[in-house]
Design a protein around this nucleic acid. Structure first.
Length: 649
RNA sequence: GCCGGAGUAGCUCAGGGGUAGAGCGCAUCCUUGGUAAGGAUGAGGUCACGAGUUCAAUUCUCGUCUUCGGCUCCA
């Protein structure tokens, strides 16, 4: 008897070995149709591999990552088969799955190159091969035989991979006329793959090392149902519409100029308005939390960054030093604000009673990013961090950390980012040489973060070995309206800089002690954050942030004067308004202003003028009836208070 | 930085060895219209930049810059 334990702890008994598919069939017909891979005692396997002994088993479908992995992994093989069909002699590198889909790195024979145009015929071939429902067969093979096989195929990429594998663990997967070296697991046959889309083609270094040759990487995604592919394509279309570079241009938020230089954003009036609104909001929240605002220059003596250690570690990623002509002093465009803030801390002696000291600055920093890396506002060479440094006693660390978490959540709430993950990054205990500071301090810092997260009830994931070289950190990832993940704010504990800058405070014992630093930036950078916000909201910003909050539309030119009067009244209540006094019909004005994503349209004509009112229209929702001017102002002011409850409570 | 696309009016794009086109936007005029496009006329371009080939280059070739998709990197 073989006892199979399922995730719900129910046990099924079989008189002889079963495979995953048979197990699924014994549970339900539907599950048998949907199951893609199986975990046996935590090891992911092919569905058609027999389970010969008692085991704890989980069946994976399209809803699980493990199910998708098997599906896409098999799809990569299918694509390889199709490519080999058109280009016999192609060498295959690696073909793994990614977040959405898979890729395969290939090298075509005789220096041939794939282009976007070739993708369609490969897609068609893949669909054709999938329809054949070719069984995917797993074979174990000795290292010697594997080597011989790929030597014969002249595929030195695979030979290199095999040479690093251990004999006895090597497996091949065969389908139709195609055989590939692979650990698996795979689908039982190619017929599961119903819909195929090859998404892009790009160069990629063999094994990710730029010293190696460049291979052609083909990206694709596949689905078990045609409908899922269609949904995916709609999603891609939507993502394209929300691209912050496109919306930023349309809404006149920011621009770039070749004359200014690449990666150096220019904030246009409306973008600047939006950004300042965010900054003012955070400044007010920080003020309530006991932060002091400071201002530091954009350059600093190279020695400052040598002291901090940034020069040694990141000097090559900075813009090269500026040298003064007469004295030969060297200055760096500042890549970080923290050294400046350390110097502010040092400007006077501190008592333990003064701590924590919380210093905030919207500090613009400059980093030399490689030209190929620049991307809209998300990756630039000059950007402004919503930076702050907290200097505290070791016994205050956890509490301070928790207060920073509070600020992060006030922001998330104000901007309706509801779905987040917090990642705790700890050091890799096996590689102490990667980190500076004592093991004791690291232990304390890591414990403080873990406990702070627990006490705040955060949803966290923990990554070992992802800590910065100077301390552990907590990063926040949010999911946007399309389900895409973005990394935003970060909170980092630092024992290093206080050491390097010899920061001190006088303790109750009248002795000198070293404070602990927390670096934190809830938005991360204003540029990146605004980009994420644009993509999250598709440019339909919450009312309090909208650069233009209401547009007043006179029915005809006869009411322009009244429109201007309404505008002035609302401006006096701190509502940002504009008047659309073009010589156009009302239908036209409504259409144009709907497309401009201004939250409210206020239509005014004879009726409104007589009764000192406005006809209110909410963007995307339509006519909302008539309101007195003051009544409208009160309603939207209340709307802001509701959205910014974190600030007012 | 590396590999591969792309660069034509303010925007989105068509075209193509004989110095250019559309729609939107903009300007002027007509119209004064009540909840998603009223009409007419007109002004906009060193076809990214620099060389080369050619009688002739915006078009072909090379280089540079910028941009897009990846790789690598991200204090």
């Amino acid at each position: 008897m073989i006892k199979i334990t399922l995730p719900d702890n129910s046990v099924r008994e079989f008189s002889e070995p079963v495979n995953g598919l048979e197990l699924a069939q014994s549970i339900s017909h539907r599950l048998a149709k949907e199951v893609l891979s199986v975990s046996v005692n935590g090891e992911i396997r092919d569905l058609n591999r027999k389970i010969a002994e008692d085991a704890s088993v989980k069946l994976h479908t399209w809803d699980d990552r493990e199910g998708k992995d098997a599906f896409w992994h098999s799809s990569a093989h299918l694509m390889a088969e199709a490519i080999e069909h058109f280009y016999p002699g192609t060498k295959f590198g690696i073909g793994p799955t990614v977040d959405t889909g898979f890729y395969y790195d290939v090298e075509l024979p005789n220096g041939q190159q794939l282009t976007e145009k070739d993708l369609q015929k490969i897609e068609q071939k893949m669909v054709e091969l999938a329809r054949q429902k070719n069984a995917i067969v797993r074979k174990e093979i000795s290292k010697k035989d594997a080597m011989a096989m790929f030597t014969k195929k002249n595929d030195e990429l695979k030979q290199e991979l095999i040479s690093e594998l251990e004999d006895g663990t090597i497996t091949l997967y065969e389908q139709g006329n195609f055989t590939d070296l692979c650990r698996g697991p795979h689908l039982p046959d190619t017929g599961y793959i119903k819909a195929v889309k090859l998404t892009s083609i790009a160069g990629a270094y063999w094994r990710g090392n730029e010293k190696n040759q460049m291979l052609t990487r083909v990206y694709g995604v596949t689905f078990p149902k045609q409908k899922l592919l269609e949904e995916y394509l709609v999603m891609m279309e939507e993502a394209k519409k929300r691209d912050h570079r496109k919306i930023g241009k349309e809404m006149e938020l920011f621009t770039f100029s070749e004359a200014v230089g690449q990666g150096l954003p220019l904030w246009l009036p409306k973008g600047a308005q939006l950004r300042m609104q965010l900054e003012d909001f955070l400044k007010r929240v920080q003020k309530k939390h006991g932060y002091d605002q400071v201002i530091t220059p954009h350059i600093g003596d190279v020695k400052l960054y040598k002291t901090s250690g940034h020069y040694e570690k990141y000097g090559k990623d900075s813009f090269q030093p500026i040298t003064t002509p007469a004295e030969g002093e060297e200055y760096l465009l500042k890549p970080m604000n923290c050294p400046h803030h350390c110097e502010i801390y040092k400007a006077k002696p501190h008592s333990y009673k003064d701590l924590p000291v919380r210093m905030a600055e919207f500090g613009t920093v400059y980093r030399y990013e490689m030209s190929g890396e620049l991307h809209g506002l998300t990756r630039v060479r000059g950007f402004t961090q919503d930076d702050a440094h907290l200097f505290c006693r070791p016994d205050q660390l956890k509490d301070e950390f928790k207060k920073v978490i509070d600020i992060v959540f006030i922001i998330f709430k104000a901007l309706s980012f509801e779905d987040y993950t917090a990642q705790i990054s700890l050091r890799d205990p096996e590689k102490p040489e990667k980190y500076i500071g004592t093991a004791e301090n690291w232990d304390k810092a890591e414990l403080a973060i873990v406990e702070a997260c627990e006490e705040k009830g955060l949803k966290t994931v923990t990554e070992i070995g992802e800590a910065a070289f100077y301390g552990p950190k907590l990063d926040f990832m949010i999911k946007d309206a399309l389900g895409r993940s973005w990394q935003l704010g970060t909170i980092q504990v630092d024992y290093n800089l206080p050491e390097r800058f010899e920061l001190e405070y006088i303790g109750a014992d009248d002795k000198r002690h070293r404070p602990v630093m927390i670096h934190r930036a809830p938005f991360g950078s204003m540029e990146r954050f605004v980009a994420v916000l644009i993509e999250h909201t598709a440019g339909k910003f919450p009312f309090w942030l909208a650069p233009e909050q209401a547009v007043i539309l006179p029915i005809s030119e006869k009411y322009n004067e009244y429109a201007q009067k309404v505008s002035n009244i609302l401006n006096n209540s701190d509502i940002r308004t504009v008047v659309d006094d073009r010589n156009e019909k009302i239908g036209r004005k409504i259409r144009d202003n709907e497309l401009k994503r201004i939250p409210y349209m206020l239509i005014v004509g004879e009726k409104e003028q007589e009764s000192e009112s406005v006809s209110v229209r909410r963007q995307g929702e339509g006519d909302m009836g008539t309101k007195q001017i003051g009544e409208f102002a009160d309603a939207v002011t209340q709307e802001i208070r509701d959205q910014l409850s974190g600030l007012y409570n």
